[in-house]
Simulated assay, not measured.
Amino acid sequence: MSIETNIQRVGIGAAKLAVAPLEDTSTFKNRAYAALKDVIVSLNIYDQPHEVRLDERQLAQSLGVSRTPVREAMAQLEREGFVHSVPRRGIYVVRKTKREVIEMIQVWAALESLAARLITQHASDEEIATLRAMFATFEDGAPHAKLDEYSEVNIQFHQAIIAMGGNGILVNLAENLFTHMRMIRRKTIAEEDRADRSIQDHLAIIQSLEARDTDSAEVLVRNHALGLADHVSRYATYLA
C-alpha cells in the first residue's frame, strides 16, 4: 500500500500526516504500526526545523480505525525509539542526539563488518555479483541530479550486505537499528561530497568480496561505517 507523507505545521500544532485508510480490518494494530512507521521513516526528520508532534485522533481518522490500535502502535514505536510521549504535550517523533547517532553507527559498523566476513566465506558468486550490479550506473560518479536515486541504492547496498551474511540473528539485530540509520544516511549523503566517496568505498568493498579477501572486506566495511560516524561528529551541527 502506497503511503504519501504530507507535513503541514500550523503554529505549534501537530504535524498532519496524510495516511491512507486501512482496507483490511483484521489486524488493526499491526497494520497501523506498519503504516505509521513507514510515514515516520519517510519524514526526513533531520531536515525538519521543529519537533514533529503527532495527532493521535487525526491519525486514527486517516487510517479509518479507532484510537486504540493507533495508541497500541504508538506504544510499540516508542519502545523501538521512534517516538516519545511527553505528559500533557503529546507524542513526538524522536530526533536522536549526535552522541546517540554516533553510537548507533559504531554498533552498525561491528554488525556489518561481521556480515562482510561471512559473505566472503559463504555467499555465492552470483549473490556477490548483485552488489556490483547495483552500482553499474554510478561507477563514474554520482551527478547531483542522481543523488536521490543513489541515496536509495546506498541504503539497499547496506541492507544487502547484512542479509547476504546469511546469519538470521544478525539480520534481526540489525533490522531496527538500520531503520534509524536509514534516516541519518538520507540526510548525510548530500553533505561534503559524501556521495562520490561513498561510491568509491562501495566499489572497493565489492572488489574485496569478489576476491574472497575476508580481512580486507571486514576492514573496508567497518572503516566505511566509521567514516560516517566521523562525518556526523564533525559536520552534523543540526544534531543536539
Rank of each mutant, 00 (worst) to 15 (best):
M1D: 07
A73Y: 01
V219E: 12
E192V: 11
H50D: 09
K98N: 10
R212V: 07
D125P: 09
M1N: 08
E56G: 15
E72G: 02
A204N: 14
L22V: 07
R117A: 10
T27K: 15
G64F: 04
D196I: 06
E100T: 09
D193P: 07
A195Y: 00
R185L: 13
E4A: 08
M181D: 03
S124P: 13
A174C: 10
K98I: 00
I199N: 07
I184C: 00
I169A: 14
D230T: 12
N223H: 11
R71I: 04
D125L: 12
E4D: 11
G227P: 05
L173H: 10
E139Q: 15
H180I: 04
R234V: 06
V83M: 05
V153D: 02
N6W: 04
L17K: 01
S208M: 06
P87T: 08
Q207L: 11
F138L: 03
S151D: 04
D215R: 12
A32I: 00
E139H: 10
A14P: 15
N176T: 13
F178K: 05
I206E: 00
D196Y: 09
H158C: 02
A123S: 15
D196N: 14
E4Q: 12
T188N: 11
A174H: 02
R99S: 14
I206H: 01
Y150L: 12
R99N: 11
L43T: 12
A163W: 03
M74E: 01
H84W: 08
R71E: 08
M104P: 02
I40A: 00
H231N: 04
L177C: 06
L43M: 14
Y33K: 03
I12R: 15
T68S: 14
E103V: 06
A217K: 03
I12C: 10
M181Q: 08
S151Q: 08
A136I: 10
A75D: 09
E149A: 13
R88D: 11
V219C: 09
V94I: 09
V65M: 08
